[in-house]
Amino acid sequence: MAPLWQPCRVPSSEFLRRRVGLTLGAGAAAGLALTTYAAWEARQYTLREVTVPILPAGRPALRVLHLSDIHMAPDQQAKQEWLRSLADLAPDLVIDTGDNLSHMASVPVVVDSLGPLLDLPGVSVFGSNDYFSPGWRNPMLYLLPDRGKRNTHTPQLPWRELKQRFADRGWVHLCNERATITAAGTTFALAGVDDPHLEYDDLAAVAGPADRDADVRLGITHAPYLRVLDQYAADGYDAVIAGHTHGGQVCLPGIGALTTNCDLEPARAKGLHRHPAESAPGDPGSAWLHVSAGLGTNPYVRLRVACRPEATLMTLVPRS
């Protein structure tokens, strides 16, 4: 009589096939779950708030809205509605650090989404995705060493129209230039360079000591390359305002940014820091550095992980 129980004997090749199938299935399910989450997170628009002590003593606080890397496509209605809602903040000054566009038809959409913000004092610089149409790129390639290859072979975006539309509403565009503006009774001495990622920056054009007669001195750039940060800090700017990094391009929960798509170290890929990193307020040749993680994504890979899209409301207060 046969035993009541016998071990199931599966041929080794069949066993391996089943193991491989289960492993691949689990990997595919995990990949789908991560992609679904990343697509959801890319639409979780967030307002960050930071306090920066750079005003002269006795001045009332004022608010600066920092926008960056909008990467607008005409079909992104949720992003457009969220941007329109920022006008309710009624900031004293708006700083746009570039990469506004992602599509040939994006200019009127960007202008409409900014709405009343364009009637406030504003400053802008451009990034590479204001100049050239984006192409598809695997985000994991950002982890590889920078070979210096830039996306300049795609059609040009209508950046001239965007620049004119901003100017028509009173914003100051800084393309390797210095300027002075007044907002909320405060005088700002500004320096802004064209996109360092494309090596369009002309540091010599904005070199020299920042205006000590101004109340606040700000250096503006799209990409926070160290050569730009070093010069602004050495020239006496109180703070440097930048974007470009997308908060690290690739982030891991609990670890943070893995890269910045420039030579800034990942630890300062977003948020408020000092430059040089080890400096303290009051140190000669040092400045505050604010890097925005930005609002957008590559239009072909609309994903973000562990780094929600953001704008930042910077409250400027007197130096302690």
Score class of each variant (00 low, 15 high):
Asp238Thr: 12
Asp88Leu: 07
Leu157Trp: 11
Met1Ser: 13
Trp40Ser: 06
Leu83Ile: 14
Leu198Ser: 00
Ala277Pro: 04
Tyr232Ile: 07
Ile241Phe: 01
Gln164Glu: 15
Arg63Lys: 13
Leu32Ile: 10
Tyr131His: 15
Val240Ser: 00
Leu203Gln: 06
Asp230Cys: 10
Ala189Lys: 02
Trp136Gln: 09
Tyr37Arg: 00
Leu65Glu: 06
Arg165Ile: 14
Glu199Lys: 14
Val94Thr: 14
Ala214Phe: 06
Met314Asn: 03
Asp168Pro: 09
Ala223Ser: 02
Gly58Trp: 05
Pro108Gln: 05
Glu49Leu: 11
Thr36Ile: 01
Glu278Ser: 07
Gln76Asn: 00
Glu49Thr: 14
Pro196Phe: 09
Trp136Tyr: 13
Arg319Asp: 01
Pro116Ser: 09
Ala233Tyr: 15
Gln6Gly: 13
Ser320Gln: 05
Gly294Glu: 11
Arg169Val: 15
Trp288Ile: 10
His153Ile: 01
Val109Gln: 12
His71Asp: 12
Ala189Arg: 03
Ala29Pro: 03
Asn151Ala: 06
Asp88Ser: 09
Asp215Glu: 01
Pro309Thr: 08
Leu32Thr: 11
Arg59Asn: 12
Val193Gly: 07
Leu4Asp: 11
Arg43Phe: 01
Thr260Trp: 01
Gly122Gln: 13
Arg308Glu: 00
Pro3Trp: 13
Asn129Ile: 11
Val52Pro: 05
Trp288Gln: 03
Leu143Asn: 07
Thr312Val: 02
Arg178His: 06
Ser85Ile: 12
Pro253Arg: 05
Gln44Tyr: 00
Thr152Pro: 04
Ala204Thr: 10
Ala61Asp: 02
Pro121Asn: 14
Tyr200Ile: 01
Leu141Met: 14
Arg84Asp: 00
Val110Trp: 08
Ala223Asn: 01
Gln164Trp: 15
His66Ile: 07
Asp238Tyr: 13
Ser286Gln: 14
Lys149Trp: 09
Thr260Met: 04
Leu118Asn: 14
Val111Pro: 07
Glu81Lys: 00
Thr180Phe: 07
Ala33Asn: 03
Val193Glu: 04
Asp119Met: 11
Leu93Asn: 04
Leu22Ile: 12
Leu32Asn: 04
Trp136Asn: 10
His197Thr: 01
Gly98Trp: 15
His173Pro: 15
Arg212Gln: 10
Val111Ser: 08
Val172Lys: 14
Ala234Pro: 05
Trp136Glu: 08
Ser133Tyr: 04
Leu272Asp: 03
Pro209Glu: 09
Pro121Val: 15
Val291Met: 07
Asn138Ser: 15
